[in-house]
Amino acid sequence: MGELANQIVQGVLVGGLYAMYAMGLSLSVGVMRFVNIAHGDLIVLFSFLILALIHATGIGALPATLMTLPIAFVGGYFLQRFLLQRVLGQGVLPIILVTFGLSIIIQNGLLGTFGADTRRVSGGGFETATLRIGGGINIGVLPLTIFIVAILMVLALDWLLYRTRLGARIRAVSDDPATANLVGLPSARVYATAMGIVGVTIAISAGFMSIWTNFDPTAGPSRLLIAFEAVVLGGLGSLWGTLVGGIILGVAQALGAQIDVSWQLLAGHIVFLVIFLARPEGLFPKY
């Protein structure tokens, strides 16, 4: 009994990391209405960037991650402005092809630069610390931190989108880009800013991922799949839904692993499919 409760708690915490992967995707799907196939690869790219920064300067994982945040914002801004924006509004296929191409470029670029080895970033002991809370449940300090940061990210993004002027502009452009232009809002620049914010969420999740899990240049697509499932489960456009979606996947995997280790990933996908068939619009749809 205690073991089962423990597994569920661990699953919930893993769900926090999944939600973090998914948050940027949730924003780009909900606001700009496209799926970035390179989303997972961008997370892996930033993990390598953090790794390289640590090796080059000897600083810790936290300052290295913080240093990548402005790079991620600017990178997201220009990626949208000069590449993705050109193919938006031309149907679903061009944007998928462009981001798919981007995914391949990132993977091969990383392979060429860093090799195929599996990497991990040291969190300086942080990643092994645990809290014993009785009843056979141990909570890792790192997973708990990730979970709390994931909640803070939802709160921050929710505030940004629904309580600030920038958020109103982003929603206006998302509603109707042509009318946004008509009232003088340059929709391309507003979208670019939104993608900059997506970039920041990517860098934050890259920082935590690089400490908690192993990664290699081809690790992106599996992150994309998890993120995509969390977004669809939660309902398009709902950030809280995305968090719940991530938690459901995390718990499903933890329980699946109880049956057999090989069931871990499969259980997550099966739960996704079952819920998707029952509720294609997701649990908390905004649209």
Binding site: R165, A168, R169, R171, A172, S174, D175, D176, T179, A180, L182, V183, G184, L185
Partner: peptide, 27 residues
């Protein structure tokens, strides 16, 4: 030049004040 377009074309996910504010900010 401000066009009040055919069919109004308001931003449905914005409140009355937010819709108005968009016009005011960029104007």
């Amino acid at each position: 030049i401000a066009l009040v377009p055919e069919g109004r074309r308001l931003f449905p996910s914005l409140t009355v004040e937010e819709n108005l504010r968009i016009g005011w900010e960029v104007g």
